[in-house]
Computed example of a mutant assay.
Amino acid sequence: MIDEAQVPQTQPSREARQWAMFCHYAAFFGLVFPFGNLLGPLIVWQIRRESDPYIDQQGKEAVNFQITVTLAMLISCVLMLVIIGFLLLGLVTIVALVLTIIAGIKANEGVPYSYPFTWRPLK
């Protein structure tokens, strides 16, 4: 759940909303670079996190989700030895794609988005 103390009570600025959206959509670097899905949001968040609390909160959420996705994909790759991993890898990919798109849209609307099924090592 999102901690209400970390979320700004006023509507974030247009620029903050765009950078929060970029934090989520930077995960698509994973289509080009290995582990780009993790590095893209991490880099964008690190560069812009101090400029606005909304960017910081959404950047952490994006990085936490991509950590979870990366771990799920690695587990799926191991499970390919017993065939079920192929199905799981496809499922993880589709769910990650859909949830990332939803998160980017919500972030651009100024609505704090919290990914479901996410391990949150970054607080």
Results as ranks from 00 to 15, higher is better:
M1A: 15
I2E: 14
D3K: 09
D3Y: 05
E4Y: 01
V7I: 12
P8N: 09
Q9K: 14
Q11V: 13
P12W: 00
S13I: 04
R14C: 04
R14H: 06
R14A: 10
R14S: 07
R14Q: 10
E15H: 11
A16Y: 00
Q18A: 14
Q18K: 14
A20K: 01
M21V: 02
F22A: 15
H24L: 05
H24R: 04
Y25C: 10
Y25H: 08
A26N: 02
A27E: 00
G30M: 01
G30A: 04
G30R: 06
G30I: 00
G30V: 03
P34A: 12
G36W: 00
G36K: 09
N37Q: 12
G40I: 02
L42G: 10
I43G: 08
V44M: 06
W45I: 14
Q46E: 13
I47G: 09
I47F: 05
R48E: 09
E50R: 07
E50I: 04
S51Q: 10
D52Q: 02
D52V: 01
P53F: 06
I55F: 01
Q57L: 15
Q57M: 11
G59V: 07
G59A: 10
G59S: 07
K60S: 07
V63F: 02
T68W: 01
T68Y: 04
V69N: 05
T70W: 07
L71W: 01
A72I: 03
M73Y: 04
M73D: 04
L74T: 01
L74M: 10
L74C: 10
L74F: 06
I75R: 09
S76M: 13
C77F: 14
V78Y: 05
L81F: 08
V82R: 06
V82G: 06
V82A: 11
G85P: 07
F86W: 15
L87M: 15
G90I: 02
L91C: 15
L91W: 15
V92S: 03
L97E: 00
V98E: 03
T100R: 06
G104W: 00
I105H: 09
K106D: 01
A107E: 01
E109L: 10
P112E: 02
P112H: 02
P112T: 03
Y113V: 09
S114M: 13
P116Y: 04
F117V: 15
T118G: 11
W119N: 11
R120V: 12
R120E: 07
R120F: 04
P121W: 02
P121D: 04
